[in-house]
Each structure stands twice: as C-alpha cells, then as structure tokens.
C-alpha cells in the first residue's frame, strides 16, 4: 500500500529543467534511497515533496491527501492555500543537509516548539515528550545547549528529533551526513538505522553506499532530472544496468573511498574491472 505517490513531477528553475516527469511511490515502512550526481534533481525532488519548492506540473499524494492541485485544464500544479499547506506539511518530516536548527533555541526548545506552537500540545507535556525523545537519541545531557554549542552530529540528531516531534508519517533526509566531519557520520547513520528499524517510512538522499545497501529497500539513481535506474540496492550497486549509473558509482568509489569502511574479509574497493562495493548484509 503506497503511502506516497509522486506522479510526473516537473520543475524548472528559469529555463533549466531540474525535474522531468519524475514518478515514484513509496510503501508504508519502506526505505527509499536516492543517489545521483549533484545537479541531478534529487534534492529538488525531496523539497518538492514537502512543497518547500513548488513543482510546475505533476501530483504529490501523501496517504490519500493531495498536496496542491495539478488537474486543471493547463495541467499546471497549483499550491494549496497557505493555511492548508501548513497543516498538510506537518505529516512530513524534513532533515536538512545543514541541520538548520533554530539558532536562538536550546536543543530541547527546538524539539518542543513544533508540538507546542503548531499542534497545540500543552507546554509541560511537549517538554516532557521532547526530553524523552532526545534521551532516546542519546542527547539527554545536551537538552539545555544551544545549537552552536553542539557538534555537527549532535545537531543533526536534534534535527531528526525535531522532525520526529511532529509525529510524521514520512521522513525525508536530504544528504543528512554530507556536511559532517567523517568521524561524526556514524552517530547520525546509527540514529537513522534505528528509525528505519522502528518502521518509519523514509526517503534518503545520500552518498553513503554502505548505509544504502544495509538499510535501503529500494534505490533509485537520478541523473539530469530523471530516474535512470531503480531496483534493490544490491542489484543497482553491484550490477548497474545503465552506463550512467556505472560511471557515477565508479566516481563515487574513487572520491569517496576513504569514507567507506571495508570489512576485514573483503578486498578494498577499486580495481580495473569496475566497481566492487564492500558488502554489508541487508538489514536483519
């Protein structure tokens, strides 16, 4: 049962077409990974799903509720009125590449403000819930700190907690670890792993192929605003059908090699014969 359907989404910035008729659907509890070179439209796709960016054409249907309308005679997509959009948006959580924690609020307050101000949860209750959420993510001792007093990894985990505080049915991650120092990547991925295990529906734009393999149920490869290839991570990563996918994976392995963690029993990636990605067992 699809919880999100995206149909023929198109979006242009000026004369540059960044999304061309992109369609996809995500089932409840599914983890969809999006990979692709920069400028391939993957971030724009994610932003359009939450209407942080308005698409030009197409349809976005979340859990039976359509975001905006695109069925007029000219097929142009039109946003909902602001109030309606504000309400629909709450059901989707967004995790930004650069965290975007509210700089004037403590970690706790970052996680409290949504439920309290938007959902109308009483302050004390919102605080208690936020505190236990942060505790669960291992941030218990940091609740009173401002974002500027936290490491990048901690900030990103607070940002995940902030998104979760709205009790979303779908979580979107826009390269959540690419702004982090290498040694801080793991704590964020671990948090996402646990979230995936808990049954959350997630769309993750990432270059962390190990993570994608381990956690992802499905991966799509985007290039030039289109979905070029889709399939199970094991298939797409080890036997990509399209030359563009192969070329991208080769590049990623060459430049991203130090960040991958080869297992002892596997040779390091690389070699003349094409990409060999250190194998990680799928989620068990």
């Amino acid at each position: 049962m699809a919880i999100l359907r995206v149909e023929k989404l198109s979006k242009a910035f000026g004369t540059t077409l960044v999304l061309k008729d992109v369609s996809l659907s995500v089932d409840k509890g599914e983890i969809l990974i999006i990979v692709g070179p920069s400028g391939s439209g993957k971030t724009t796709l994610l932003r359009c799903i939450q209407c942080l960016e308005f698409p030009d054409r197409g349809a976005i249907v979340l859990d039976g509720v359509s975001f905006g309308t695109g069925d007029g005679p000219d097929l142009r997509w039109r946003p909902d009125p602001p109030r309606v959009l504000d309400v629909k948006r709450r059901r989707v959580g967004f995790v930004f590449q650069r965290f975007n924690l509210f700089a004037n609020l403590s970690a706790l307050h970052n996680v409290t403000i949504g439920p309290h101000r938007v959902l109308g949860v009483p302050a004390a209750e919102a605080r208690a819930r936020a505190a236990s959420l942060l505790e669960r993510l291992g941030l218990g001792e940091h609740v009173g700190k401002l974002p500027s007093q936290l490491s990048g990894g901690q900030q990103q985990r607070v940002a995940i907690a902030r998104a979760l505080s709205m009790d979303p049915v779908l979580m979107l991650f826009d390269e959540p670890t690419s702004a982090l120092d290498p040694e801080l990547v793991d704590e964020v991925l671990q948090t996402m792993r646990e979230l995936a295990r808990s049954g959350m529906t997630m769309i993750v734009v990432t270059h962390e192929l190990d993570f994608a393999r381990e956690v992802g149920d499905r991966v799509i490869f985007m290039d030039g605003g289109r979905i070029v290839e889709a399939g199970r991570p094991a298939e797409v990563f080890s036997q990509p059908r399209e030359e563009r996918t192969r070329a991208f994976l080769r590049r990623l392995l060459r430049t991203g090699a130090p960040q991958l963690t080869p297992r002892d029993d596997q040779p390091p990636p690389g070699g003349e014969t094409g990409p060999v990605i250190p194998g990680v067992d799928r989620r068990d």
Partner: peptide, 15 residues
C-alpha cells in the same frame, strides 16, 4: 534555512 526548517514543521509565516 531557519525559515525553511520552521515551515517544514508546519509553522505559519507569522509563527
């Protein structure tokens, strides 16, 4: 990013 984060959790422009 501050505005986008606020809008992404459903806050209105005014909030």
């Amino acid at each position: 990013g501050q505005t986008e984060a606020a809008r992404s959790i459903g806050m209105s422009r005014f909030q």
